[in-house]
Simulated scan of single mutants.
Amino acid sequence: MGGDVKAERTKDATDSGAARAKDDLHVVILAGGLSHERDVSLRSGRRVAESLRETGVRVTVRDVDSRLLPLLAEERPDVVWPLLHGSTGEDGSIRSLLELLELPYVGSDAAASRVASRKPVAKGLVADAGLATPGSVALPQSLFRELGAQGVLDAVLGSLGLPLVVKPADGGSALGVTFVRSAAELPGAMVACFAYGDLALIERAVTGTEVAVSVVDLGDGPRALPPVEIVTDGPYDYDARYNPGRTEYFVPARLDEEQCRTVCEAAVTAHRALGLRDLSRTDMILDDEGTAWFIDMNVAPGMTETSLFPQAALAEAGAGGMGVAELYRALVVRAAGA
């Protein structure tokens, strides 16, 4: 991963960052962009900027457009925090540019982001690390045209059965995701999925308690924040995620000690297996037998008022841990001192 900015962060980064914490840090938050998740990104950017300003950090929020690179080259901020969601925000491309500009940034490096953002690839790596993940197949849109849609769908149903979850292989916020209960629903689910990307991940549906576990690493190794349990009056889709009322969150999740340990250890294992740094969020389903099924990894977790990472951070603060704003500042200081 050549280059000074890509150099591995060591444990003494916290010590070097501690002196830097006294300085007038300038952080540029990247928010917006042109993905389907632009609005979520803008809201995430505003929330993190407000929190950082509470701790005395000087913050500028920048959109991703033709003016960005000249502005970054001119301003040379101490740290950049990419809070971009969707393909270009999480696939490593923006991070690659920041590395070319030799600008430190919060979050996983470009190579790890590329791997983690590709759902089929991430599933394979966490499975190799010993985690359970639902059986699935990844199929491009072109295959349906070449072989005929019905034949491909029959093969999928014959192997994976029902129910299924169809989702784009990239992207987040449940855009293009459909829960399929019958064979008749599968063609429409594929159409909805391909509206957001050319590669579909078709996965066996797993039932149980939906849990999200955020992980942070401030220099002493990754650790899990309190799990968040998600209960909805329907699918946990885009509307349920970002519009209050349809979803109820339990923070910490209503799990016993063993279940809590299981999901927290799974999230840290996934974070390590994918080579991530600073922060991540793992989405899982805990079934009735106590198995934590890996569903998805988020290298740029949402930071809106209803997002899961801030809720976990708030629960950590309530249990005597670091406050949310202080946690965000610590992530910035770590990046600046790396």
Rank of each mutant, 00 (worst) to 15 (best):
V228F: 12
W81D: 13
V48R: 06
E229C: 11
Q150F: 01
G2C: 01
T304N: 10
G86C: 07
R47M: 12
V57A: 06
L157R: 02
D39Y: 01
L201P: 01
A224S: 15
A73I: 07
A111Y: 04
L25I: 13
G56F: 00
V28K: 07
I285R: 06
S142K: 04
G188I: 01
V324Q: 12
D4T: 09
V156Y: 08
V263Q: 11
L143C: 05
L71N: 07
T10K: 10
L83C: 15
V64T: 09
L255A: 10
I202T: 02
R58D: 15
P82F: 00
L101F: 05
V228L: 10
A270Y: 02
D39S: 09
A317H: 11
A270C: 09
I202V: 10
E74C: 01
G161M: 02
Y249G: 09
V165D: 07
L201W: 02
G158F: 04
Q150P: 05
R67W: 02
Q259E: 15
R261F: 06
Y236H: 15
E146R: 12
R145P: 05
S66I: 03
R114T: 14
M297K: 00
S44V: 05
V61C: 06
A312Y: 12
V206W: 03
A73T: 12
L308E: 05
S142Q: 11
E75D: 09
P222F: 05
A31H: 13
E185S: 07
L125M: 14
H36C: 11
D91M: 04
V324F: 10
A169H: 01
E54G: 11
D287Q: 03
D237R: 08
G318W: 01
A315R: 09
T178S: 14
R58Q: 15
T282N: 04
R241S: 09
L153V: 14
L255F: 08
W81R: 07
D24P: 02
V59T: 06
E8A: 09
R261H: 12
G171V: 05
A189L: 05
A205F: 14
L98C: 13
L279N: 04
A336T: 07
D91Y: 03
D109I: 00
P168C: 03
A253N: 12
T291D: 07
V231D: 15
R47E: 15
D217N: 14
S44P: 13
L286F: 11
A292K: 08
R76T: 01
R272L: 12
T282V: 14
T60P: 02
T207W: 06
A111T: 15
